[in-house]
């Protein structure tokens, strides 16, 4: 979304900087939200193969789990759909404290 334009610019800039350093980089994008999720659709976060991150996809509740998942995606090269929410405890060990639900698309930049 528009509001995210400048901020997404800096996320992609950071991703490009990591790629230029020879790091592997994964990109997570919020593709759907329900309830009171803190970040709108289109928000992005980049993660490199050392676990460094830029940007955000929630208010800080799930970024750690996304960094973890990103390492799998960087290993396999296969994109993943992730969903996080309080009602979804069986699938994911972390939830959103705010009570919302968020779906992410996580992919490697290759």
């Amino acid at each position: 979304m528009a509001e995210a334009a400048a901020e997404v610019a800096s996320v992609l800039d950071q991703a490009a900087a990591w790629l230029a350093e020879g790091r592997q980089v994964a990109l997570a994008t919020v593709i759907a939200t329900w309830g009171s999720s803190p970040r709108p659709v289109g928000s992005q976060m980049a993660v490199d193969d050392r676990g460094a991150m830029a940007g955000s996809v929630s208010g800080g509740c799930i970024e750690g789990a996304v960094v973890h998942e990103a390492q799998q995606v960087l290993t396999t090269g296969e994109p993943r759909l992730l969903s996080f929410g309080v009602a979804d405890e069986t699938a994911w060990s972390v939830g959103l404290a705010c009570g919302g639900k968020v779906e992410l698309y996580l992919e490697a930049i290759r």
């Binding site: 610019a9 992609l12 800039d13 991703a15 490009a16 790629l19 990109l27 992919e107 490697a108 930049i109 290759r110």
Partner: peptide, 14 residues
Amino acid sequence: MRRRLFDALRRAQA
């Protein structure tokens, strides 16, 4: 995302 598309995305942004 292919690197080529990522670069094109960044060009459009710039």
